[in-house]
Design a protein around this nucleic acid. Structure first.
Lengths: 240, 240
DNA sequence: TCCAGAAAAATTGTGCGCAATTTGAAGATA
DNA sequence: TATCTTCAAATTGCGCACAATTTTTCTGGA
């Protein structure tokens, strides 16, 4: 008998890793906003997973800071306060400066090709007005840089940090700001191709500085806003 | 009734975090070498923890790469191959360069004091011949640097990387090498006090380069060496 | 209508026990 | 003696059921 069956034989039966990836993707795509409660049984139902296995997935998500587990209350999409948000971006500045330096010194033609393709895809989405997809590609650019270093530890770390950044942006992005520093990636790629490490590092630093400055850390909502708080007090009556 | 009871009322009852820390400490102190099997029930017995809770601790240890969980076989102290060992050190070079730069630019007198005390303690142990303790302090120096940045993400990351480095060293250290670059920390502190970021970064880089070069990646043992492998083939007969 | 207080429902926490697998040892055969 | 097979012991994997807690709903009084 296959190991991952859930008492009905025809389930789609994803593996734990796949489900972890799917949830991360949903968070990155901002389909679930910070503070959203992740009902364990509902997740089990959706993914056809036992509670025990889902518990492990949620544990992993909490270890990487994407989910907060509150005893006896359950799992919530992580909702960073300003200090934590700044720590995430600060960590990125430090780590990505090093990554960019390594890439500038050691990347090959095939690597540049991958970066180029990513930028092309992002532009494509952006011009087609599919901003959500464009933002996703934008994040993947940074992960791609980590991949090019060939260091799986940095790669995992960047996946975490990019995902957490996505949550932070959805919490604190300036609704007026147009978040339009999308030329940066292309410029960075030129620096990398020319093996100009120092300018590449400076640009990455400024890229992340700009992102941080585009955020507005006004106290807009509570530490752990529930669904009710997010969707307002309209949900009380059940009639149309 | 207290939540963490294990059916006998008088247990020492550590929390999960405390036990996690204790195991990490044992690994860092090289009281358990890479490849050592961590028997779940035995750990439950020692720490007076239920299997379920211990499972979570082991899961966390595996997430940070200190333990490898093999399905149906259990938990083993992580035994990195050469490629993984290099990745760990390479990640440290990139991250710690950034940390050192941040510390050089922003650290205060109190921070320098902490570093100074750490160096003093390490020297003390070294001169007293308590090398194991000296090595531990040496590792803590690097964690201290991360703490001084005030960035908890970098701090957690460095704790992981230092611990994993300790495992790598115990696997690959050159038995002839004396591993005597212990003046580096003091020199680094001087650079930091003088806010000389660039020399400090270069020194840290060289410090880690030296560490890496002191390792010998000869194929000395298998991927998952069991206790038998470690303690040789002498254990078959039971008579003295 | 509004606000405590209590009962009910929903949800999470976790020990227990068995199934599945691996490990170790004993036995058979050449 | 060495090697393969077989069987028993040890160990991990995991569903289940109940306990503990929180959340929601219901109720009565001001």
């Amino acid at each position: 008998m296959p190991r991952s069956s859930t008492s009905n034989g025809e389930s789609s039966s994803f593996s734990q890793d796949e489900i972890y990836a799917q949830i991360v993707e949903a968070l990155v795509d901002q389909r679930m906003l910070p503070g959203t409660r992740l009902n364990e049984l509902a997740l089990c139902e959706v993914f056809k997973l036992s509670r025990r296995e889902m518990e492990k997935v949620l544990l992993k998500l909490s270890f990487v800071g994407l989910v907060k587990l509150i005893p006896n209350r359950g799992a919530f999409v992580a909702s960073s306060d300003a200090s934590e948000a700044r720590a995430i971006l600060s960590a990125r500045k430090i780590v990505e400066a090093g990554i960019v330096e390594a890439v500038a010194l050691r990347a090959t033609g095939a690597d540049f090709k991958r970066l180029e393709q990513n930028i092309a895809r992002e532009d494509e989405c952006r011009h087609a007005g599919r901003m959500r997809e464009a933002i996703k590609h934008s994040g993947e650019f940074h992960i791609l840089l980590a991949e090019i270093t060939g260091n799986f530890i940095l790669c995992d770390l960047m996946k975490q940090l990019v995902a957490r950044t996505s949550l932070v942006v959805s919490l604190y992005e300036n609704p007026n700001g147009l978040s339009c520093w999308h030329g940066d990636h292309a410029t960075l790629l030129r620096h990398l191709r020319a093996h100009k490490a120092r300018p590449a590092m400076t640009l990455m630093q400024r890229h992340l500085d700009d992102l941080e400055e585009s955020l507005v850390f006004a106290p807009q909502q509570d530490q752990s806003p529930d669904l009710r708080a997010i969707f307002g007090g309209v949900g009380k009556g059940r009639n149309g």
